[in-house]
Amino acid sequence: MSQRAQANHCPYCGDEDLRPHDARPGTWECRSCQRIFSLTMLGLTNEGGTP
């Protein structure tokens, strides 16, 4: 399995002081605003316009 890209900044405060959170993969902890958030891929867009 390949490594996933890391979050570059917090979606809430914009700070870059992020650490992986231990709860589950894809979960990040912002040391600035003390929030824990997760990143998930929802899918790919279909540029052709048909589902």
Rank of each mutant, 00 (worst) to 15 (best):
W28F: 06
P20T: 07
R35N: 07
H21S: 02
E29I: 00
C10N: 01
Q3D: 15
S38T: 11
G14T: 06
R31W: 01
E29R: 11
G43S: 04
E47W: 12
R4Y: 14
Q3R: 12
D15E: 09
L39G: 07
A7K: 00
A7V: 04
G14Y: 05
H21I: 02
G48P: 03
M41G: 09
N46E: 09
M1V: 08
R4Q: 15
T27R: 15
N46C: 02
R24P: 06
T50K: 13
D17F: 04
D22V: 09
T40Y: 10
R24K: 11
L44V: 08
T45N: 13
A7G: 01
E29L: 00
T50V: 14
S38M: 12
L39R: 08
N46Q: 14
A23C: 15
W28Q: 06
P25H: 05
H9L: 05
M41C: 04
L18S: 03
Q6R: 10
M41K: 13
D15G: 14
E16D: 13
R35D: 10
G48Y: 04
S38F: 13
I36C: 06
A5V: 07
P25R: 05
L44A: 09
R24S: 07
C30R: 01
C10K: 00
N8S: 10
G14C: 08
Q6D: 09
G26F: 02
R35V: 13
P20F: 13
C13W: 04
P11L: 00
R19D: 06
R4K: 14
W28N: 09
S32M: 10
T27G: 05
P20M: 07
G49F: 07
C10E: 02
Q3N: 14
H9P: 00
H21C: 12
P25Y: 08
S2G: 14
N8C: 01
E47H: 09
A7D: 00
C10D: 02
T40L: 15
F37Y: 04
T45Y: 15
P25F: 14
D17L: 09
P25W: 06
D22S: 14
